[in-house]
Amino acid sequence: MSVETLTTSEYIKHHLTNLTYGQIDGHWGFAHTAEQASSMGFWSINVDSMFWSLATVLIFFFVFRVAGKKATTGVPTGFQNFIEMVIEFVDNSVRDSFNYQNKLVAPMALSIFVWIFLMNFMDLIPIDWLPQIAALSVEAMGGDPHSAFFKVVPSTDPNITFGMAISIFILILYYSIKHKGLGGFLSELAFHPFGKWGLPANLLLEGVSLIAKPISLALRLFGNMYAGEIIFILIATMYSAHIGFGIFGGILQVVWALFHVLIITLQAYIFMVLTIVYMDMAHQKDH
């Protein structure tokens, strides 16, 4: 097996490297080392993050479609009840903090909540299962299992979290300009806290708070998930030490996973609530 021959720090590095597809020395292919992956630059794609984010979104679509097809108007049971609870929870959050007419916001909040929850949930799967399956299948196809990098939690990849946050930023700009007009949006940026004589200070403050929205959204999710993932990896390194350490590590992993259930739900919830609040602020006509 590939992992037994690695040292601890190589094992950690192996778990933190994405499976990257891009250009190496003029031809297209997968990166075999972390150095190659980072030398690919902008025109490369993290295949594992893309695969798992699309897989989780398909799971989300499939589960909710099945529930929608089977839905009855009678007393809901089991599965349907659960889906209705999720939808009602999101619906209440939207009603609490969003006061305008917009058909996009509630479905978007539901997608964000369930999708981020599922992406974060990949963190709870023991960290070697899926990468080991990937390494074994690469070996079966005649490849080198050492270069089979596989990072299964899409939200530990800043590209994914920044992609989501930037899409929301574009929606904020779109609705701000649509509802306040370009002039209204710009005058809010230029004249808001200190009136027209403090224009440079206004621009600085409001510009920073505008740019801080997507950055803090993306980095909050990424930071939480990345820290949690690293702690899982550090616990997993204990299994190779000694039988006593292994048992201790197993207990630690269960405890941290139970605590992490709270964190992943909370992060999905916060991302959703902040999106709703930002959309609400974008619709606000006057301060």
Partner: peptide, 8 residues
């Protein structure tokens, strides 16, 4: 959030 970003 900010401490967690720092931790990450």
């Amino acid at each position: 959030a900010v401490p967690m970003i720092a931790v990450g």
